[in-house]
Every structure is written in structure tokens, then in C-alpha cells.
Design a protein around this nucleic acid. Structure first.
Lengths: 192, 192
DNA sequence: CCCCACATATATCGAATTGATATATGTGGG
DNA sequence: CCCACATATATCAATTCGATATATGTGGGG
């Protein structure tokens, strides 16, 4: 998903500044599904403005830095519809924890145990945050997204609770310097 | 998770070429958790070699392009342990489908229905692939990772099957040009 | 038999994106 | 009184991606 589309989609919900967009991707119900840095948000908004897809009003209030509040133009709304009409790209999932799990036989038990514990805490905290949102925000798409997230975290926590010990038990089971093919069919060349 | 650590971790399992690493991140049991392009893999391996963390042997067989097969040095193995000893960074999840769900009230039913159908197919295909791996690879950490993935996809598919219709029903429920705050508390400034 | 597509393999380069930092100002806590 | 933090935009070096170039063998279709 590119930043352009994400900006158009949030602006379709109502006007916002670059700072607001960043907040929506950092806090709140949409924060687990997308993110972008200021270094790409501001240039993207500027480009969208040049292309006539958004326009902005300068809001300079006393005691606060000036704010550029962007809103979609009619052609911006069209571009939004068009971008979202294509079948969505598949999800992206990146997990440092998965790498750790893969390396379990090479690692000391302590490292694995701590990682599992930290992860359980993190996932439980995320779940609690989503449950808090669910209890205050009842608007349909938000509720749906939050319910999806709650479902995911509950499932993930349940798996870790059930199988965490099994993973921890693999610690140190590889002889030092030993070989352990991650994906035998993923090794090309003329290896015997 | 940075590419450096990911390279060290896979090389800790056994020697591999840049091409092999890419395959491991594209196919097989670890493909859902990480990825990197050749444009970063090759420079990273070169840098690791300069730093003495890996060394390579040139394998030039008849009828095939030359292969640079990298393996960890002792200091590489130390760097690997050190990098994995820090508590792992939280997972990253990016979903274009979530953006679509958020925008459901602005979109035609057809678009939503198709997106849900495509997603269900994709997720079922991923699940089938993991189940195939599970039935052929019994080594402990791989099995654990694959079981995690299977658990995740089953849970996700179940949610979509149960709640997909609910999402589709939201299509077109917003008046054109209507406002719908994604995250009211994420709007700063003096919006009265 | 020829050609094209594909797999193996490394490498480079422009474009996109991140992460850190600069700038400016008001507020609240120690 | 000072420092940390929130608001707000902007820029820049460094990282990473995605596309492309190069070279070669294999297998399938016309």
C-alpha cells in the first residue's frame, strides 16, 4: 500500500494536517495497519496539492505553529475511489520474534524465555488497548477493524500461552557451529 | 529487524549465497516473516565480509554462473548471538485490506465483496501451503513456526467467514462527501 | 530446430522511504 | 527556572526497494 493511497483514504474521511495523519497511523484504531514518517508524509501532501487532488487552508492560531489543513478536491475523491477499487495487495507481516524462534536451537534458554515473556506482555497490552477502543467507539467500520484486531491478538496470545514452553525447550539443542537447513529446497547450486 | 541480523541468522544455520537467502525469504517456512531485495542483500553481504563477520568461497561450476557461498566466521557467530539477545522488536503488520475496510462506507458493494473474496482465496492458499510444509518438515523450530502460521491463518479465515458479510453490508452507507472521523482524539489544532 | 520463457546468479542504479535532526512556540511539572 | 513534552512543518543523509543489466543453461512449444 503506498503512502499516496493511504493519505487520500484518510482525507476522504475528513480534512487533516500532516501531523494528524501521522497520529492516526501511530495511535488509535488504524495504527496497527499502516505507518509512514514525516519525511514521506509532507512531500506526499505537497505532491498531491500540485496535482490538484487536495487543497489546503493555512490555520495560524495564536500560540501555536501554523497548521496546513488538507482536504480532498473532487478529482482527489475520484483518485481515492480508483485507487481503492483495485484488489488490495496482500498483507505484509514482518516479525523479529519469528527469526528468534527459527534460531531457538542456537540460543540460550534465558534469551528465548525473556523474548517470549516480553512478547506476551506486548500482545496483551495491544489487546487491552483495542478492547478500550471497542468499548468507546461504536461506529461500524472502526468496530469491525477493532474486532478483527481483538480476534487476532486473542488467537496469537492463546498460541503463545499454549506453545511457548515448547519453543523455550528447544534452546541450545544445536551443537555449536552445527548446520540446520532452514529450507533445503531453497539451496541452489551444485551442492552434492 | 534489519537485513544484517537476518543475514547473520540464516547464515548461522549453514552457508548460503545471496540468491539462496532471497529464496529463503520468498519461499519456504520463513517467507512470511521477512523479505529483502537483491539491492540490499548483496551490499549487506559485501559489508559483512569487509567487517570479517562472514567469508566466502567462489564456486564456479561448468554451465552455471559463479556462486559466492558465504559462511559465518567466529566473530560473525558472536555478532549473531549478540544481535538476537536483545528483546525482539515488535511485529510489523501492514494491510491494504484494513484500509479498504476502514473506507467501506465510501465504497461500492461490488468492490468490497470482491476484495473479501480475493482475500479469502489468498489466505486459504497460504494456509494450504503451510499445511503442505507441516506434513513434510518435522524439524522442531520449523514445525513451531509453521504451526504458528497455520494457527494465524485459520483464525483469520474464520473471522472473515463469520464477519465478511457484515463488512460488505457497510458499503455505500456514507453520504457522498460526508465526514467520518477515523480517530477524533487524533485531530489536533483548534478545530472548534 | 529454433526461439522464448524461465531458473540460476551477481550487480548496479534511480526512486522511495526512513530515522534523525532543525526550527519555532506554548504548557506543565520538578 | 529549566527541562521535557506536545504541537507543527520541513529537510537530509542513509537505507531499502524495484527495475534493469549481464551471462548462461534448460526445457517446452511451434
Amino acid at each position: 500500500m503506498n503512502i499516496r493511497t493511504a493519505c487520500l483514504a484518510l482525507l476522504a474521511h475528513g480534512e487533516a494536517s500532516g501531523y494528524d495523519l501521522k497520529k492516526r497511523w501511530t495511535e488509535g484504531p488504524f495504527s496497527r495497519f499502516f505507518d509512514a514518517s514525516f519525511g514521506s508524509i509532507y512531500p506526499t501532501l505537497a505532491k498531491l496539492e500540485q496535482e490538484g487532488l487536495v487543497l489546503f487552508r493555512q490555520e495560524g492560531q495564536a500560540g501555536k505553529p501554523l497548521r496546513k489543513v488538507y482536504s480532498l478536491t473532487e478529482s482527489g475523491r475520484q483518485a481515492f475511489m480508483e485507487a481503492l477499487s483495485a484488489p488490495p495487495e496482500p498483507d505484509v507481516f514482518r516479525s523479529a520474534f519469528a527469526l528468534l524462534a527459527l534460531c531457538a536451537p542456537f540460543l540460550p534458554a534465558q534469551v528465548l524465555e525473556r523474548a517470549i515473556e516480553v512478547r506476551l506482555n506486548d500482545q496483551r497490552a495491544e489487546l487491552a488497548e483495542l478492547e478500550a477502543i471497542a468499548s468507546t467507539d461504536t461506529r461500524a467500520p472502526i468496530s469491525w477493524l477493532v474486532a478483527w484486531g481483538i480476534h487476532h491478538f486473542r488467537s496469537d496470545i492463546a498460541f503463545l500461552e499454549a506453545k511457548g514452553a515448547e519453543l523455550a525447550a528447544m534452546a541450545g539443542s544445536a551443537e555449536p557451529g552445527g548446520t540446520y537447513e532452514v529450507c533445503p529446497s531453497c539451496t541452489s547450486g551444485a551442492d552434492a
